[in-house]
Write a protein that binds this DNA or RNA. Structure first.
Lengths: 264, 264
DNA sequence: CGGGCAATTGAAATACATCAAGGCGTGTGG
DNA sequence: CCACACGCCTTGATGTATTTCAATTGCCCG
């Protein structure tokens, strides 16, 4: 019939990343506050609360286990049960869902500061697969503790609803991208979107970023075929829009790319 | 370039549906509890709380304005500001987003008991267009009051997070549908999904339902062209899977349809 | 040095879009 | 009551964006 199969054969056995060590968040403060995404993420809120140690529960600082996963390893399986809420500290990961026959759709790329999903605060299994693109380290907060925090500190709740709304907007964009945009638009769009998110985190130098994702990732994120992604990327290069060398992406003609993306 | 334009030309001027009358929810109890979606929706929770009138805020029952909108009218515009959280009582509606050039993607069909979006409890403008398919009546709760309710009654919050998670699952499905499924799968899938949701509401008689949506709605929901939708529906009919007459859809071969949909 | 993963390219196939025309049903105005 | 327009469905012919298939290359890593 013509079904685009998954583009990435999964040869990894079920293998939960072990908690390497447990720390309380405060003791890691220095480390966290130097994180790329510090101000964006829940982490900042959590740590600041732990610091301004005034009322009841702040006396008991939030415990997070730090975990590390090598590149290309599965971090969590669709129906894996977990009592922890993970937030990325370093590296890139993907969340995706798959059809039984292997077709796969990447829902988002996870960057430092991202929770796997906002809903992970309330659900024990996300229904999604999370995979490391590069080596990844993430912090896993105990869900029950984080929830207690949530009810205790209105600002945390507020932060959460805000990021929920953000997430919804991204979903909406994803839907219209996949449903109604051409291949070039989707690919240009995803590049620009990633650039934005990276630059918010201070992870760009001028117009270039380290760009660890493979073409098959782009394919799975855009609902296209790796071959076709390749052709369109070549076209972008030919037209002087971008340049990719050595896992580094640089945008040569931002306006041009924006125009191709047909952005909002 | 080959851009599928919107399939539905919008000739409706900006026109906010007027609040026809204001009532307090308790006085409408009989009406609401006979609603198709009574047990599924927030409404039940709200009314039951209003009834079991024990502590503080329940003394002041939630006020909802009931509004009616004729078929094909726009209910709310993408950046329209509103202090109300709407829940459908009767009729079908769509939520969609559009690109500047007119391409459009339907994100979901709204049925009785559905909120426009779970996030509408927290955001003043959804970024989405909501349009009536049939005549629609909906209830608009004041956001501030509903939020107070939320913080007061844990069960309401619980209900909300549950429906949030449901919503997330639907988003995920939408993404993989649009990104990775064939036209036939998408269309069969949407039919089965609607049947499920309708039957949960008691809106089916045996295998047939009233089916007010047009082919262009299916097109906009599946990311396809009305023409192509038509061809695939014809095929379904030819193969004895479904039958559509007189705004009524009946499923003749559920197993077959399921098989075409390639469902989970 | 071999083997798997990734990128690249060309040729052929196909799923879906576009274009075009006609029909049917319903409401509307003369 | 007819004429007419309009929205919707239907169908065929043609075009094209994207997939599939296949083969080659380079690269990194053990």
């Amino acid at each position: 019939m013509g079904i685009p199969l998954s583009t990435h054969q999964q040869s990894v056995s079920y293998d939960l990343a072990p908690a390497e060590y447990r720390i309380d968040a405060t003791s890691e403060h220095k480390k966290c506050s130097s994180c790329f995404a510090y101000e964006l993420s829940l982490c900042a809120v959590i740590l600041k609360n732990a610091e301004s140690n005034v009322n009841g529960i702040a006396g008991k600082p939030l415990v997070a286990s730090v975990r590390k996963v090598p590149a290309r390893r599965t971090i969590s399986h669709p129906n894996e049960w977990s009592d922890f809420v993970p937030i990325i500290c370093e590296g890139w990961a993907t969340t995706s869902i798959a059809l039984p026959d292997g077709r796969r759709q990447i829902l988002s790329f996870l960057l430092p500061g991202d929770m796997f999903s906002t809903a992970s605060l309330f659900e024990y299994a996300s229904g999604r697969m999370v995979e490391a693109v590069t080596d990844v380290t993430y912090r896993a907060y105990k869900r029950s503790e984080l929830q207690a925090y949530l009810y205790e500190y209105p600002i945390v709740l507020e932060m959460l609803t805000k990021s929920w709304i953000e997430e919804k907007k991204r979903y909406d964009q994803l839907a219209i991208d996949l449903g109604r945009r051409t291949a070039s638009e989707r690919i240009a769009g995803i590049i620009l979107d990633l650039m934005n998110r990276l630059s918010k985190r201070g992870m760009t130098q001028d117009q270039t970023v380290v760009f660890p994702i493979r073409q098959h990732h782009i394919a799975d994120a855009t609902g296209l075929t790796p071959v076709h992604v390749n052709k369109i990327l070549s076209e972008f290069r030919r037209n002087g829009l971008i340049e990719i060398t050595n896992r580094q992406l640089t945008i040569l003609d931002r306006a041009g790319l924006h125009h191709v993306a047909n952005m909002r």
